[in-house]
């Protein structure tokens, strides 16, 4: 039996063991797009350091680069630097369009990605691991954007025409049926790639750490907390006074990072790993001044949520009155809906 026939035969089974997770997708989209926007808004009060002619920016040579590279570095083109605020406006607009409009989600996701990349590439000297991870994940999330879970809600609130428009939002000639299957399957791959990316972060960090004498010697945290940019007075004093804590925390971090890429795939251990990882990254966010990286990593764990868990979390954030108010303004025939309303 050929590989194709074998796959076709077992397709229903594959779909059963690897189901699409509409609520996980929606929760993840809400968390990551919102955090990406907040992380840029954080830079606004000090914009003169990051963007514009007088900023701490060094021109990148664009001659001979591909058009994709130029598209991601438009602000580096001659005469564009002072228009960074337009990129910022586009970023905010695409965020609002993504969550408020029933269609054009893929387009909004692409525009959000491009505007964020342009702003970040211009201020590249200030970026950290958190920005790096957001760039990669926002690219994968373009393939989550057309997920037809929204079309159920869209059909309820805006009618079948809007639902069809949303499914073929990419502007392709693909009919809603084919588009629907594409986005359903691409969303599974995209979510898997996001999970793999998180596993890769830990695999690389863990494997590199066990090559270092200070990590295997159990004293690495002492050095981290005594390096000026990462120092937190409280943690520094705690580590100085309690050598046993230094050793336990240092070894726990290495053990966690090495085992995460394997253990997170088992449903029995996943919950414990996600809990331990959240603690670790909250510690990094507030204990080492790497706030953006810490929060980004915490949010990445949402991609490991089961659909039911994501639904329960979304229910806590249901701003039904606001959603309904907006939906009624957009279309008076709207039926009242909430974030978790899928059939």
């Amino acid at each position: 039996m050929s590989w194709r026939k074998l796959t076709l035969k077992h397709l229903p089974k594959i779909e059963q063991v690897w189901p699409s997770r509409p609520h996980t997708v929606r929760l993840f989209q809400f968390a990551i797009y919102t955090w990406a926007l907040i992380s840029k808004l954080m830079f606004l009060p000090g914009w003169f350091y990051f963007w514009g002619q007088g900023s701490l920016h060094v021109q990148v040579e664009l001659a001979g680069r591909s058009w994709v590279w130029k598209l991601l570095n438009i602000l580096d083109l001659q005469g564009f630097a002072d228009y960074w605020w337009i990129a910022f406006l586009i970023l905010i607009t695409s965020y609002l369009l993504f969550f408020l409009l029933p269609y054009g989600k893929v387009g909004s996701a692409i525009i959000f990605y491009l505007s964020l990349m342009n702003l970040d590439n211009y201020s590249r000297t200030f970026l950290d691991g958190g920005s790096n991870l957001l760039h990669l994940v926002l690219f994968y999330m373009i393939f989550l954007a057309g997920f037809p879970h929204n079309s159920v809600k869209v059909r309820q609130s805006f009618g079948a025409r809007a639902a069809k428009a949303q499914v073929s939002a990419f502007g392709t000639s693909a009919g809603p049926r084919v588009g629907c299957h594409f986005w359903r399957i691409s969303s599974r791959w995209a979510l898997l790639m996001i999970q793999l990316q998180v596993a890769v972060v830990y695999a690389v960090a863990g494997l590199t750490k066990i090559r270092g004498n200070l990590w295997t010697g159990g004293v690495a945290l002492y050095y981290v907390e005594n390096a000026d940019p990462f120092r937190n007075e409280f943690l520094q004093q705690l580590i100085l006074k309690a050598p046993i804590l230094t050793v336990i925390l240092t070894y726990s971090i290495v053990l966690f990072q090495i085992s995460f890429p394997w253990m997170v795939w088992f449903s029995r251990t996943r919950r414990y790993y996600v809990f331990a990882g959240t603690l670790l990254h909250l510690g990094i966010a507030f204990g080492t001044n790497l706030f953006m990286f810490g929060v980004t990593m915490c949010l990445m764990y949402l991609s490991f949520c089961e659909d039911g868990e994501a639904k329960a979390i979304l229910k806590q954030f249901e701003f039904k009155p606001l959603i309904n108010w907006l939906a009624v303004r957009l279309n008076p025939n709207t039926r009242k809906v909430g974030l978790t309303s899928t059939s």
């Binding site: 750490k209 090559r211 270092g212 004498n213 990590w215 050095y223 390096a227």
Partner: peptide, 20 residues
């Protein structure tokens, strides 16, 4: 390196041992 550049060696293989 063209579009998916990434580096996850945070404090690795060794944490910083100097202050600048």
């Amino acid at each position: 390196k063209s579009f998916f550049a990434q580096d996850w060696r945070l404090f690795a293989p060794e944490p910083p041992t100097k202050n600048f």
